[in-house]
Write a protein that binds this DNA or RNA. Structure first.
Lengths: 148, 148
DNA sequence: TCTTTGTTGATAATTATTATTATTTATTTT
DNA sequence: AAAATAAATAATAATAATTATCAACAAAGA
């Protein structure tokens, strides 16, 4: 599912970013993967085809993307940050042994929580978003988890 | 609200830990604070009265506490880990400008989510816990947030 | 074209954390 | 109680992840 370049260009430009080659490939990798990669992982993926791009640029670019609201930074119980290009509201399932972060989107759950906060007000606070962190471990690490 | 030493000793011993002075003071700081401090912050607090305790010991001790199920390790959008001595199920409100992590416990919400997962099953996955991460920012950083 | 500004790559520096090891303290054995 | 063994700690070194610096380059404006 290769996102077409035009779309990527528009997305970058639409967020007030100058379109550069490095930004294109970094954003493209994020679009193509659903594994919520770390900076290092993104760097590994792109450097085959683009050996000149430096790790520092990957870090800086990711930070710029986060600032501009293009991607989200997500934190894990290990020491490193991971990045998520999926911007719709969704939750994350953390597998404590495989370290995977699996997306979990459920409209009913979202509504449930949103509804709850319509009643429950948090004063002196401007609520931006909520995310459910579900943690546990895969029973068979080789297989996918399945939500039914 | 100084926790009495006997209680702390019992808690440590009850989790299979040898009672030492450093473990006592580290656990005590965690009990006394609701700010979810980082290792560094704990170190700063205890070193006034205990200048000989080393930062490495703080890190190691915290890790031991986590392993033994005495405390929880929580991750923030910045790069560092923070520790939480409150072990009952509760959620966290994260203020993106003051970097505060504020506890948010609500039985109704817990029930709502628990109920949801009774119906919605996640296959090939052993669900351990879920926590709602609420983020946003305080309107007046000087004042507390209030839940009504 | 000249000037200014933004971006990148190379590298150094910093921060948070973990590992190592000698020493200290506690526990068990004799 | 002394010696032997084990566990915990302090000091320090090492590592990993991330950020800062800065010169070179590219793009945009005057």
């Amino acid at each position: 599912m290769l996102k077409d370049l035009q779309y990527i260009k528009q997305t970058l430009a639409g967020h007030g970013l100058k379109v550069t080659h490095q930004r294109m490939v970094i954003y493209q990798v994020l679009q193509e993967t659903d594994t919520h990669p770390a900076a290092e992982g993104i760097y590994e993926k792109i450097k085959k085809k683009n050996p000149s791009i430096s790790l520092g640029t990957v870090y800086k670019t990711l930070e710029v993307f986060v600032e501009k609201g293009l991607i989200k930074k997500i934190n894990t119980s290990e020491g490193n940050m991971r990045y998520d290009a999926r911007m719709d509201i969704h939750n994350h399932i953390y597998c404590t042994n495989t370290k995977e972060i699996i997306d979990f989107k459920d409209d009913e759950l979202d509504m449930l929580v949103r509804d709850f906060f319509k009643r429950k007000k948090i004063g002196n606070f401007n609520l931006k978003e909520f995310r459910l962190h579900i943690s546990g471990e895969k029973i068979d690490p080789g297989k996918h988890i399945e939500i039914t």
